[in-house]
Nucleic acid binder design. Structure first.
Lengths: 109, 109
DNA sequence: CTTTCATTTGGCATTTTCGCCAAATATTAC
DNA sequence: GTAATATTTGGCGAAAATGCCAAATGAAAG
């Protein structure tokens, strides 16, 4: 692996890692519907506020979401529309695993 | 987050985690071209054989790749054709990050 | 200015992941 | 059979991720 290849793979891994957590996937799915503030997401998830805030920070740093401040409240929203395609693909892998078939997102129904 | 939602998010996170490592992304990219054996991938990556073997095991358990034994050699190949779409999406996020624009895979060039 | 509410940051213990080595397994050659 | 080659597995220390608490910051209200 050349230096350049290693840098590129590491960069990509960072993005994927940012999404690779149950709460963060849940957050992305909720934000895919509409913007939510930290408090609302915290209530939904049930973890500590600081934990949720850190998850949001991870997603933001990766470029998946963005934030907008409104008074005391910070609203987060999805910045990258391809995330849903991401999750569709994940779903497709899961489906193919359970069916023990080769997966393909276009044939998955 | 309901029990069911938590299970679903955890399941999805597992799949994403399996891909969220520089070497594993590199492996998927190589296998996307054609099947390779452990030795060949080890040479390309430069890590210990056991390390690469474990990465392959992670990818296989997640359902991304499959293996076929030929004599002493084990060849791995991509089982899920949507993986390239995955990586395209990751690329699109990276690109939008550097350009500080909203990303969308369809407009990314 | 003080209080209150929403969020972020620092710190720390726990858990998970990583990567090497050594040993085990499997297959072919001698 | 033994030796050589390819891969996997077990184990262990090092590094990274996780999640809570407490403290800090920021903004509006009294």
């Amino acid at each position: 692996m050349s230096e350049n290849e290693r840098i590129k793979s590491t960069e990509r891994a960072k993005i994927l890692k940012a999404l690779a957590h149950p709460s963060r996937i849940f957050i992305i799915e909720r934000l895919n519907e509409k913007p939510y503030c930290v408090n609302e997401l915290t209530d939904m998830i049930g973890d500590d506020t600081s934990t949720v805030s850190k998850h949001l920070s991870v997603l933001k740093n990766a470029g998946f979401i963005e934030s907008r401040k409104e008074g005391k409240t910070v609203y987060y929203s999805v910045r990258c529309c391809c995330v849903s395609g991401f999750l569709d693909c994940v779903e497709s892998v899961i489906k193919s695993n359970s069916e023990k078939k080769i997966c393909c997102i276009s044939t998955a129904e």
